[in-house]
Amino acid sequence: MTETLSNAKIVLHGRAIVGGIVEGEALVTKEAISGWGGIDPRTGTVIETRHELRGQSFKDKVLVFPGAKGSSGWSHYFHLARLSSAAPKAMLYTKTNTKMALGAVVTHAPAVTDFDRDPLDIIETGDWVKVDGDTGIVEITKRNAR
């Protein structure tokens, strides 16, 4: 991200999936995430053997990722993470499949998809992100501007 953009807020518009307004620090991955067999729902830690986020937790983070892959236990594991208070604070994803849609719905955290620009190109881990799950508007403050 260039210096000129870094001081201003970047605004993305997407399709609102789960309502609510939250803000928090972004955790970004360009790799899809597995639920069952891919995360520990008690801590929100990614456990997949060769995943770039292995060992990192999405608990209380704004998780920015392409979407869900792997087992059909995806929604159940994110559901469990929510009940263990280890779910992401919000989820921004770019590819809808049934695992992702159902998972977002049962996680109850504000969720947005189908953006006007690719959030994976714009948001970096550590950026501050405000997510409005009612309108689909996402505001990003770059880490180096904070």
Binding site: S72, H79, V106
Partner: peptide, 23 residues
Amino acid sequence: ESSAVVYCNSVLGARTNTEGRES
């Protein structure tokens, strides 16, 4: 069950998405 879903669609020609526990 992702392994059953892919079998159901591909080998049997029945129609399903990968559903979850809630759906």
